[in-house]
């Protein structure tokens, strides 16, 4: 299985390559990708430098252009596709049907991967993209159980990539408009969810409050760890109860599903985290490289090494991890 690692900056790209990523994925410095953060991502020049660094060490580079362009911004998105193709990336990670169509006709020789934002969860949806855009691979939304993924591998017309570790979307990707309901930015339109510019922290007699564009997302008592106010991870009132009504702050971790994923025939494991530091990237790539190598060597005798899970837990949101939807009970 290929290990696909996040590169939010040139230093992060370099450590991912050095730690043994088989592929890194990056985006440009604008709204054309789903991790639009201030100070993050690549100019054309930096991207060229990163691609050279990766390619000269046998590592592939994928470019995520996985938000949804509107007519007023269309040219910015097609320019990003042209730039990536001209830079010689190994694949474009796309979600928008119009943009997939553009890339298919304009750059037929550049591989196209369907982004997780493309929200394809069935053989029929994957067939749509295979028939129309000849996609080589699709990244699956984090909503399927392990059994459902296994079924899908059997009927999929293309190879499949799944998320292995990192932030967890509780909603099916590409079809979540919660962020733009409260702020003027969403993953689809701007590549941003619960954007930092809308976040306010305030110490009050009732506790430390986090707000998103004025709306109270959570309130922390002194002994509690405060987390980033991603709006689906807040504490809300439903009926008489105040709780994490949608999702707790936690990270996805499928390390102990690795043997199963390999048996199913999954082509690639993706690590989330382009918004994270190079130090974070170094640690997660190191663990996953070791785990994948161990799996190759030990095959059926594969055992998880304790330090791996310890490292991953310490790097997780709320210091806790979950198998997410892969695990039936979580639903």
């Amino acid at each position: 299985m290929e290990l696909v690692c996040p590169a939010g900056s040139l230093p992060a790209l370099k450590v991912a390559v050095d730690q043994g990523a088989n592929a890194v994925y990056l985006g440009f410095r604008n709204s054309t990708n789903a991790r639009q953060f201030a100070g993050l991502n690549f100019s054309e020049k930096k991207a060229a430098e990163g691609i050279h660094y990766a390619h000269s060490r046998g590592c592939k580079v994928y470019c995520a252009i996985n938000t949804y362009p509107q007519p007023a911004g269309w040219n910015e998105w097609t320019r990003a596709v042209d730039q990536a193709a001209n830079l010689g990336v190994d694949a474009l990670i796309l979600a928008d049907i119009g943009l997939l169509d553009y890339a298919t006709h304009k750059h037929p020789s550049v591989n196209r991967h369907l982004s997780v934002q493309g929200s394809a969860t069935t053989a029929a949806a994957l067939q749509f993209h295979a028939d129309n855009f000849g996609i080589k691979r699709a990244v699956l939304p984090r909503v399927l159980s392990a059994a459902q993924v296994a079924d899908l591998v059997k009927s999929s017309p293309v190879e499949l990539e799944v998320f292995g570790f990192g932030s967890l979307c509780i909603m099916v990707e590409g079809r979540c408009y919660l962020s733009s309901y409260l702020t003027d930015e969403s993953p689809n339109s701007k590549g941003a969810c619960s954007p930092a510019k809308a976040v306010r922290w305030e110490d009050t007699p009732k506790g430390l409050e986090s707000r998103l564009n004025g709306t109270l997302i959570d309130r922390y008592q002194k002994d509690e760890n405060a987390g980033y106010p991603t709006l689906c991870k807040g504490r809300f009132n439903v009926g008489e109860a105040t709780y994490h009504a949608l999702e707790e702050p936690t990270s996805l971790n499928t390390l102990n599903l690795l043997p199963q994923l390999k048996k199913m025939g999954i082509a690639a494991i993706k690590l989330e985290g382009r918004q994270r530091s190079p130090a974070y990237v170094k640690q997660i790539v190191e663990v996953w490289r070791q785990a994948l190598d161990a799996l190759e060597e030990q095959q059926d005798d594969f055992k998880l090494a304790t330090p791996w899970q310890k490292t991953l837990s310490s790097l997780s949101e709320g210091s806790s991890t979950t198998l997410g939807a892969y695990h039936r009970r979580w639903k």
């Binding site: 984090r142 509780i170 909603m171 408009y177 009504a245 939807a325 979580w330 639903k331």
Partner: peptide
Amino acid sequence: LAWSARCFTARHHNLPK
């Protein structure tokens, strides 16, 4: 606004989906 693998109404009642 959104769809999930998880059922939030069942979750509110502590029931598996």
